[in-house]
């Protein structure tokens, strides 16, 4: 596979090294002369000096035959533009963009640049996983399908405790897909009984979180909004 990486910061440099180690052909483009010289000592001909938002620089790096373009500069507008021209002008099949400011994710989506990866967002999810709000953890968002998969902890004294799956009173558009208990997990039937301390995985239509949460949260912890 041939990959063009724009931006030789920590992310770009390490990605380049990993891809080269896995026997891929890689060209990194870096616009800072000093940074270029540092990385060039290790990666030699795998890095080129230049502004990767200039079309001729991308062409010199061989974007026309690239299978993958990765835009990981520190500027979101640059990453958007690089991926946009890679896909739309040069017909590159796969692009990956770094989103520095998660509030800019909507721009990446609007202009068809996906996937856009936001480190801040990823870390926030990990934090939420450690400190879940009302026991709810987002496991996966399927944006285009408008579905999400969440994990709920069954609180003591919650409406769900002791109820069978079919009598949980879940809203239409939600489904229990598995129950995790004592280090194991199983796919329940309608008769399976939910216990306090269980972790329940559900798939739901976007927007049903609150209605689902109230079935599993303890009375005191139930969200007021």
């Amino acid at each position: 596979m041939y990959a063009v990486i724009v931006g030789a910061g920590k992310v770009g440099w390490n990605l380049g090294r990993e891809l080269i180690d896995k026997a891929n052909e890689v060209t990194i483009v870096e616009r800072s002369r000093r940074r270029y010289e540092v990385v060039e000592e290790e990666l030699e001909h795998n890095i080129q000096y230049g502004d990767g938002t200039e079309l001729w620089i991308l062409e010199r790096a061989g974007i026309e035959r690239a299978d993958l373009v990765i835009a990981v500069t520190g500027d979101d507008e640059d990453n958007i533009l690089i991926c946009q021209v890679a896909k739309e002008k040069y017909g590159v099949e796969r692009v990956v963009a770094r989103c520095n400011n998660p509030r800019n994710l909507q721009h990446f989506e609007l202009l068809g640049v996906k996937p856009a990866v936001s480190a801040t967002d990823l870390i926030m999810r990990l934090i939420e996983h450690e400190v879940p709000k009302y026991g709810l953890v987002h496991l996966l968002d399927l944006k285009e399908e408008r579905l999400e998969i969440i994990e709920m902890e069954v609180a003591e004294g919650s409406p769900a405790e002791g109820a069978s799956v079919q009598s949980l009173g879940l809203p239409e558009g939600s489904l229990v897909i598995s129950i995790l208990r004592d280090g194991g997990g199983f796919v329940p039937t309608g008769d399976s009984v939910v216990q306090a301390g269980d972790e329940v995985l559900l798939v739901l239509d976007i927007g049903l979180e609150e209605a689902v949460t109230e079935r599993f949260a303890g009375r005191a912890a139930a969200p007021s909004g």
Partner: peptide, 8 residues
């Protein structure tokens, strides 16, 4: 003063 900002 940024081309890419303007285009986005």
């Amino acid at each position: 003063d940024g081309d890419n900002t303007n285009l986005v």
